[in-house]
């Protein structure tokens, strides 16, 4: 029977080989998750455009210009004017932006005004550091934060108070201060970790991990605190709800209630926090990069701003914006996976 039903269909597929692909394509287009991703990516182009304009305008409002920065105190007015012309900063802001934009859409972000090295090359060498820091911090924050939050909600009492105290401390102490303490204890005192520097993963995975432990720990204190507190509140809310009471009355095991039902319900709030944390971390790594001597993008962004290195600054902002967009899309996709209501909407 089944064979009889399938055979004509198979026959027709063989006769029209493109049909399966078209049907698969139609299914994909109808997928709410993919539609969401498509919409997000389309709006991202507009966002990138607006952010790049804003960066250009805001950077132009900073007193001084790159020619003055390069020439220093004793540059003559003629040399100053000539260098401004050579750098192209004597043109109107619109002309400068248009020039940058037309190159950028072809994948050319220009070269630094100071070292003449292509912006893409510099960013490419520093992005892995910032991504390692950010992703490492997100993972640690998520795992520890959720674990502490769940434990606190389930066990309550002293554990709950301890989590509250930890959350308060994590929010109160800035990462660079925690970093300095960690350096004193674990790098200088115990000699377990290096005091500075970054080792690429490809060079030595073990050394890469060691170079990240202290900075990620310093950055994670805040993330763990925030996620633990949010998880605890969401879990308490879920555990006190009607459906959990019903589940308990039906004899569902406590582990299943906590992990399969309550935690899944709390996931929406946790995911929102992770998304916000990821965006915050991109800018928040600067101080930790300086304390641990890490060659990331945060430090580069600060120095490019103070030196009026517009191409480099634009490149970094575009890079950060793309990462932020990617994080948001990822969070949105996760929403649709954990919450059927979002899929339907």
């Amino acid at each position: 029977m089944g064979t009889q039903e399938l055979t004509p269909a198979l026959g027709s597929e063989q006769a029209r080989p493109g049909a399966a692909a078209r049907r698969a394509g139609a299914t994909l287009v109808q997928s709410p998750t993919l539609r969401l991703v498509g919409r997000r990516l389309a709006s991202s182009v507009v966002l990138l455009f607006i952010v790049s304009i804003l960066t250009f305008v805001l950077a132009s409002l900073i007193p001084g210009d790159p020619a003055r920065q390069i020439l220093g105190a004793q540059g003559t007015p003629e040399a100053y004017a000539a260098l401004r012309h050579a750098l192209g900063v004597d043109r109107s802001l619109f002309a400068q932006y248009w020039d940058w934009l037309t190159h950028a859409v072809h994948g050319d972000l220009g070269t630094s005004l100071f070292d003449d090295v292509p912006v893409m090359e510099t960013i490419g060498r520093r992005l892995p550091v910032t991504l390692s820091l950010t992703i490492g911090t997100l993972l640690v924050s998520l795992i520890l934060g959720v674990a502490l939050g769940v434990a606190s909600a389930v066990r309550g009492g002293a554990v709950g108070r301890a989590v509250d105290a930890f959350a308060l401390a994590g929010l109160a102490f800035p990462p660079f201060w925690i970093g300095a303490l960690l350096l004193s204890w674990f790098a200088v005192g115990l000699g377990w970790f290096p005091t500075f520097g970054y080792v690429p993963f490809a060079e030595s995975p073990g050394a890469w991990l060691r170079s990240l432990v202290l900075p990620v720990t310093a950055l994670s204190a805040f993330g763990v605190s925030v996620i633990a507190k949010q998880t605890r509140e969401a879990m308490l809310e879920a555990l006190g709800s009607e459906y959990v009471r019903m589940a308990r009355a039906s004899g569902v095991s406590e582990a299943s209630i906590v992990l399969r039902h309550a935690l899944k319900n709390a996931a929406m709030r946790i995911l929102t926090m992770v998304g916000l944390l990821a965006v915050t971390l991109l800018g928040g790594t600067v101080a930790v990069e300086i304390v641990f001597g890490l060659p990331g993008l945060g430090d580069l962004a600060v120095s490019s701003t103070t030196r009026h290195d517009a191409p480099m600054l634009q490149g970094i902002v575009v890079c950060f914006t793309i990462v932020v967009i990617a994080v948001n899309v990822l969070v949105d996709v996760c929403y649709t996976l954990v919450n059927p209501k979002v899929r339907v909407q």
């Binding site: 520890l144 502490l148 290096p194 060079e203 995975p205 073990g206 050394a207 060691r210 432990v213």
Partner: peptide, 22 residues
């Protein structure tokens, strides 16, 4: 238990890659 596991992890990681910059 979590703290103990974390401490153990730190010690293990600290032992990793010790020869990387030899």
């Amino acid at each position: 238990v979590a703290l103990a596991a974390l401490a153990a992890l730190l010690v293990v990681v600290a032992g990793c890659g010790g020869d990387s910059s030899s």
